[in-house]
Design a binder for these strands. Structure first.
Length: 567
RNA sequence: GCCUCUGUAGCUCAGCGGAAAGAGCACCGGUCUUCUAAACCGUUGGUCGCAGGUUCGAGUCCUGCCAGAGGCGCCA
């Protein structure tokens, strides 16, 4: 439609009916109300350029437009809209087209031949997957699925840190828990991992190795802790159908000297200097540094790239900060040649991500392929009757307080966790209402959507039993209700494209709910197997529900949710 | 203090600069001898935080203010 309008405008210009001007973007979009058509173009924006009334411009365009394959009716509406109504014949044809496409319905080609990477979760192996990680996990995986639907070859990657001080603490903590299990009286110092889960791991170790690890150093316990934690993390993620293709650890960047090569290039490019404090430090900061007696550290002059202050790359004790390997990692990522590298992070990593981008520029590289989705904070809440407000579910070391992915899945379901984590713009904070998600009622959109698929499956079962088939169905027997559903379903292609190009996977969740809301009333009115429905009509309707079920299946799979045959 | 995000119905939230602000839940009233009612139909509910500005047109863009969340480490 965009092309047709642009063509009509050009023709009008050449015929002298419109003055010459550069034709701007043609903003065609579906209007809010059904009587305004399926696609709409406002010509008001051209009023100034063309020095004519919007309605006159729209009229000129209308008369110059060729007939479109899918349109049966173009309509002029004040103050200057052109509304396009998709023809019923076209919609009827789509029933068969949808069924033919099946599981690859609306498989787009905007990413064909291109490679995309989604890095998500990336939690360090020091504990279970929390509710915060879960949001990143769900958003990242949905993004990956949408990129696949858009035609990209997608890699899911998990980056983790197994090098720093935190892992040392973890190893030491586990060693103490192990000794405790063997009967020693221990007390975990402040800053050690207090979580009960290490007690369980220690119990496992005793069961497996007895007391043979008694004299091992804490270093041995780091490796043990890491592998146990990862087993747990992978199992948790698998429970909501999430699996990564690659695990990339920070240690490898040290082993390959990558971080030092990166630092070298940054230095060559003149962005590195040695100093006890950063160049722009205020006197207070300088005094503070003197008081602490710091030796010179290695600084990255990130202020050259718009940062508010410079950042330490190598501490005065010779150890790199987290930032340097992070820059090296993203450098490696870009060198692997991805056309798109999506990074799903919590908003608490905002500053860090900016510094990494500055670092990439300091290497003389273009950070453009990197796109970060920042998820706002998420917390589990429940309604407090007495206070009449939501309150956060308190974090607790004891089980059953919903602060881990495992707890959430146990209390609700994998599908519910996925849907609720996805059905929100990443920009808005998420309060995960545990009680509402637990309810399996019409309050819960998860089941509302899945039930659409289930209802289709129910019809197919019954039809098979009664020997009703849909082959050779005459789709002209479909009514307005069914065509309205098809019309809405055809928006899915656009939704996928929007979700991918704007990195907004939540759009798919809202669309799924909207489509289900179109479906259910139709299911109520449009019966297939009923004594008053003529056999030929039943056949056509069965064919329609076949198409509907294909659409819902595709939607549910794009969200990583299951498509049950019955509930 | 600076940076990012948020403020839309009683609650939780959608809403690409376009036509008369949307959905779910809650509330109220109806629908099961029918392919499972986890559904459907109807009613109620709004100064889009406040104030300016840009525009033919602003919930949407800009500025300021108010309120909430997160971040501004020689932590990761």
């Amino acid at each position: 439609m965009e092309k047709a309008i642009a063509g009509a405008l050009r023709a009008a210009q050449e015929a002298g009916e419109l003055p010459r001007f550069k034709i701007p973007n043609i903003p065609v979009s579906p209007p809010k109300r059904a009587d305004q058509g399926d696609l709409s173009y406002p010509a008001m924006g051209l009023a100034k350029l063309a020095r004519k009334k919007p309605i006159d411009i729209a009229s000129l365009v209308l008369s110059g437009m060729p007939s479109l394959e899918f349109a049966c009716e173009l309509e002029l509406a004040p103050p200057g809209f052109i509304n396009c109504f998709i023809s019923r014949a076209y919609l009827r044809r789509q029933v068969d087209a949808i069924i033919a496409e099946g599981e690859s319905l609306f498989q787009l080609d905007i990413g064909s031949g291109k490679r995309a990477q989604v890095e998500f979760v990336s939690a360090n192996p020091s504990g279970p997957i929390t509710i915060g990680h879960t949001r990143g996990a769900v958003v990242g995986d949905a993004m990956a699925r949408l990129l696949e639907a858009a035609g990209y070859e997608v890699q899911r990657e998990y980056y983790y840190n197994n090098a720093g001080a935190q892992m040392i603490k973890l190893g030491k903590s586990l060693r103490l828990r192990y000794l405790e299990r063997l009967g020693a009286a221990v007390e975990l110092p402040a800053g050690y991992y207090q979580g009960e889960y290490l007690v369980d791991v220690a119990a496992d170790l005793v069961a497996e190795y007895g007391d043979s690890l008694r004299d091992e150093a804490w270093q041995q316990f780091i490796a043990l802790a890491e592998s146990r934690m990862f087993d747990w993390i992978k199992r948790s993620l698998a429970s909501i159908e999430i699996e990564h293709d690659a695990f990339y650890n920070e240690t490898s960047l040290f082993e390959t000297d990558k971080i030092w090569q990166v630092l070298h290039v940054m230095r060559e490019n003149g962005h590195i200097y040695e100093s006890p404090y950063w160049e722009g430090a205020a006197e207070e900061e300088i005094a503070d540094v003197r008081a602490k007696g710091y030796q010179p550290a290695t600084w990255f002059r990130s202020t050259s790239f718009g940062d508010e202050k410079d950042r330490v790359m190598v501490k005065s004790d010779g150890e790199p900060t987290y930032t340097l390997p992070d820059i090296a990692y993203h450098c490696d990522k870009l060198e692997r040649g991805f056309d798109i590298a999506v990074n799903v992070l919590g908003t608490d990593h905002f500053s860090q991500a900016q510094v990494v981008k500055h670092g990439i520029r300091a290497l003389g590289m273009d950070p453009e392929p990197i796109h970060v989705i920042f998820n706002q904070m998420v917390r589990a809440v429940r309604w407090n009757e007495d206070l009449e407000e939501y309150e956060a579910v308190k974090q607790s070391k004891r089980a059953g307080d919903f602060d881990t992915l495992d707890d959430l899945v146990a209390m609700t379901s994998a599908d519910a966790v996925r849907y609720h984590m996805l059905a929100r713009s990443p920009n808005s904070q998420l309060d995960f209402d545990v009680d509402q998600v637990v309810k399996q009622s019409n309050e819960n959109p998860v089941y509302y959507i899945q039930n659409a698929y289930v209802r289709c499956a129910g019809i197919f079962r019954e039809a098979a039993e009664r020997g009703v088939a849909d082959d050779g169905a005459d789709l002209n027997l479909l009514g307005e209700d069914e065509l309205r559903f098809i019309r809405k379903a055809l928006e899915l292609g656009n939704v996928i494209e929007q979700a991918v190009t704007h990195y907004e996977p939540h759009k798919i969740a809202f669309f799924a709910h909207e489509l289900a809301a179109v479906f259910h009333p139709i299911y109520d009115r449009v019966r297939v197997l009923h004594s008053e429905v003529p056999p030929e009509t039943a056949k056509a309707r069965l064919r329609f529900y076949r198409a509907a079920s294909v659409v819902f299946y595709r939607l549910l799979r794009l969200m990583g949710m299951s498509a049950p045959e019955r509930m």
